[in-house]
Simulated scan of single mutants.
Amino acid sequence: MKRRGRGKIGIVHTSCKRCSKPLVMTNRSIYGAYVAKTIYEQICSSCITSEEHHDLLRAQAGAILENGSSQK
């Protein structure tokens, strides 16, 4: 099955909104966790709190489970 509406994943160079360190990220969520990407996309690994990291991982896992179950 061919998926529609998905372009290539691009690489974006930016900076952390908290500490201004250079960041490299993708232009869209690889896992389909678009809300989490919008919230955490410009926070580097040094600045993200453990609670934010946990929320991000939970959102990614949920998106993976949701997208994986729709492909069956």
Score class of each variant (00 low, 15 high):
Ala59Lys: 05
Glu51Leu: 07
Glu51Gly: 01
Leu65His: 05
Tyr34Gly: 04
Arg4Ala: 11
Cys44Met: 08
Gln60Val: 08
Glu41His: 13
Ile11Gln: 03
Gly7Thr: 06
His54Asn: 13
Cys44Asp: 02
Ile11Phe: 08
Arg4Met: 08
Gly10His: 12
Asn67Leu: 09
Ser20Pro: 04
Ser70Phe: 07
Lys37His: 13
Thr14Ala: 02
Pro22Ile: 01
Asn27Ser: 11
Tyr31Asn: 11
Lys17Glu: 13
Ser69Gly: 01
Ile39Met: 06
Lys72Thr: 13
Ser45Gln: 12
Leu57Ser: 12
Glu51Asn: 09
Ile64Gln: 06
Arg28Val: 10
His13Gly: 03
His53Asn: 14
His54Phe: 13
Lys2Ala: 08
Ile48Leu: 07
Ile43Gln: 00
Asn67Cys: 03
Cys44Thr: 02
Leu56Asn: 09
Gln60Ser: 05
Ser46Arg: 05
His54Trp: 11
Ser45Met: 07
Ala33Thr: 04
Cys16Val: 00
Gly5Asp: 00
Ile48Ser: 06
His53Val: 01
Arg58His: 02
Leu57Pro: 05
Asn67His: 12
Gly5His: 07
Ile11Asn: 03
Glu52Lys: 05
Ile64Asp: 06
Tyr40Gln: 04
Gly68His: 03
Ser29Asp: 06
Arg6Pro: 08
Arg58Glu: 15
Leu57Thr: 13
Val24Pro: 01
Ile30Lys: 15
Glu52Cys: 04
Thr14Cys: 01
Arg3Trp: 11
Leu65Tyr: 11
Thr38Gly: 15
Ser29Cys: 09
Ser20Met: 09
Ser45Gly: 11
Met25Gly: 06
Thr26Glu: 04
Ile11Met: 10
Ala33Met: 05
Lys8Leu: 06
Tyr31Thr: 15
Leu23His: 05
